[in-house]
Amino acid sequence: MNSVSTWTLIGIGPEGWGDDILAGVLVTIALALATLPLGLIVGFLMALGKQSEDRGLRLSSDIYTTIFRGLPELLTLFLVYFGAQRLLNLATSATGLPEIGISSFLSGMIALGLVFSAFASEVFLSAFRAIPAGQTEAGMALGLRRSRIMLLVILPQLIRIALPGLSNLWMNLLKDTALVSVVGLADILRQAGIAARVSKEPFLFFGIACALYLVLTMGSSIVLGSIDRWTKRGEVRR
């Protein structure tokens, strides 16, 4: 140990890194929560495309999945971070607008959203296939419109079937946020890295970072477990 004790190092205050790392935890959670709706909506639309009768639409959604499921997450992030900045610069210089910088948070959100939606579309697709066609037909026999059938008949069942797959994707998303630290987002890993460099206690701080990710995934599995029970509340009663 150096002159400063471990407890001071991880505590809150001018000598301690506790407050910085806690801020990093908030950034990690914020990024994951901000990406989730984006990924879910795009993934859902892609799943609709994949099971449409339109062959062109099916092929287009398959191309999307192939690309963003096949690329390494880190490479997707770099493509968005550097590529989007270039496109923006081209656009602003062509139109004469002032330069806009793309933040690491936004590019992380886009990149992780692309990856999440590519995987989510497959989860939604298999959930769609697990719902018998008779459900849609019964809805039509009752005279419901297509949108009402989707909203009232299909979606409630879809969520229940897709939830385990989506839970896995959420865990992956939570872990993938750590990659965004590479392009400068002040998340758990980056704050821990700074603390490790300054205090020369890398094992302590990277160990804390790992422990915090474990806490986040554990907390998520508790929350997701209760959501799962909630969606199955109709089945449990016998």
Partner: peptide
């Protein structure tokens, strides 16, 4: 299994490459 599946790979790599420098 829980540790290696519950933490990001990049954090594990940092823990091993930089963290083991502590020892």
């Amino acid at each position: 299994v829980y540790f290696f599946r519950g933490t990001p790979l990049i954090a594990q790599i940092f823990l091993i490459y930089y963290g083991f420098g502590s020892f």
